[in-house]
């Protein structure tokens, strides 16, 4: 077997660097005022995981219209229902996407909208129940073409 020459060694090394960098690139960073939005919505309380199912494509080819569906487990009666759901995108120029307000008349805490995503990032949903408890869920969406013009 031939010994590895200098050029091949470089190629190998480069490959390793790529491999180690890749997961970091996929881990989208918070680049906007998402924390402020969360603070305002939750009043500083930490939301628990669960109850929400957030449906988004894993890879969005066009960031201009990314379908988003959300459904939250709740009986939706006058005593116990989902009040507000805030949706945030932590890599957009502005973190806010939409705040959905349900009532017991909604019957189901489910909604679908289409959103814009500027780049690969996390979409966060926080639900506020009628008793004040909070739940959260997030999903990473890879965006190949950004949706904020430019």
């Amino acid at each position: 077997m031939k010994a590895i020459n200098r050029r091949q060694a470089f190629a190998l090394g480069g490959g390793f660097v790529m491999l180690t960098l890749m997961p970091m690139a996929a881990d989208a960073e918070v680049t906007n005022d998402a924390a402020k939005w969360i603070e305002k919505f939750t009043g500083g309380k930490a939301p628990a995981k669960g109850k929400i199912s957030l449906d988004l494509p894993e890879i969005a080819e066009n960031g201009n219209t990314v379908p988003l569906s959300i459904s939250i487990e709740s009986p939706m009666t006058a005593d116990s229902y989902v009040k507000d759901v805030m949706i945030l995108a932590d890599g957009n120029p502005n973190a806010g996407v939409a705040t959905l307000s349900f009532t017991p008349l909604s019957g189901k805490a489910e909604a679908s909208i289409r959103i814009r995503l500027a780049t690969t990032q996390n979409v966060v949903a926080i639900a506020k129940m009628s008793d004040g408890s909070l739940f959260t869920e997030q999903k990473t969406v890879k965006v190949t073409i950004g949706g904020c013009g430019g």
Partner: peptide, 27 residues
């Protein structure tokens, strides 16, 4: 609104796509 009672509402931000499509449920 349904017969004057609120059913569903949402505040939208610029991150909503053109020609906003909204789907929800009502009892």
């Amino acid at each position: 609104e349904f017969n004057g009672k609120p059913v569903f509402s949402c505040a939208l931000e610029p991150a909503i796509s053109a020609n906003p499509y909204i789907q929800f449920d009502a009892k």
